[in-house]
């Protein structure tokens, strides 16, 4: 196979003078073609019949693995607030919350967080709950689906500490 003799076929008078060589298919090209066909069919057989996987099965495996690595948080358990948490919580506040509650927590669209009044309760758990679930009727988002429980807890720690929670 794969001889490159550069013999023209003599089609020229039917092709506006364009000639064609009778060169063979390049061997590596044939090899590539066979490889992709065999590989492709092999992949399909393996996917559906040998490992019998599916996108759903793979998704469930991914979720289970994550569940094992990062078990669901118990949001009601008492938290030991660390300096680290407060620092991260502050960062989160500055990117997500200042739009409504202001850089000094003095409020704006949302209420003042430094005064003594807590519209939805001022204990750690109550603040956390407000942030998690949001206050849709007043326009505050439910943050847990956005930030995830850990970050909600961190920002709660910051707000509770800096805002003088109960």
């Amino acid at each position: 196979m794969s001889k490159t003799q550069d013999q023209v076929l003599g089609h020229g008078d039917e092709c506006d003078g364009i000639e064609e060589y009778d060169n063979d298919l390049p061997a590596w090209w044939v090899g590539l073609f066979i490889l992709t066909v065999v590989g492709g069919i092999g992949y399909a057989i393996n996917y559906h019949f040998v490992s019998e996987t599916s996108q759903l099965a793979q998704y469930q495996a991914e979720m289970a693995e994550a569940e094992a690595q990062w078990p669901a948080m118990d949001m009601t358990a008492t938290v030991v607030v660390t300096e680290e948490m407060l620092a991260e919580g502050k960062d989160l506040y500055m990117t997500n919350c200042i739009g409504c509650h202001g850089p000094e927590m003095k409020g704006g669209i949302g209420p003042d967080l430094t005064d003594a009044e807590w519209v939805h309760g001022g204990t750690f758990n109550e603040i956390q709950n407000t942030i998690s679930k949001g206050v849709p009727e007043k326009g505050m988002l439910s943050w847990e689906p956005i930030l995830g429980p850990q970050k909600v807890q961190k920002v709660t720690a910051y707000v509770h500490a800096a805002g003088g929670g109960q």
Partner: peptide
């Protein structure tokens, strides 16, 4: 899509 990161970001696939 059925990926965990998309579930976290957007919800169920």
């Amino acid at each position: 899509r059925p990926f965990r990161d998309e579930t976290l970001r957007y919800g169920e696939w």
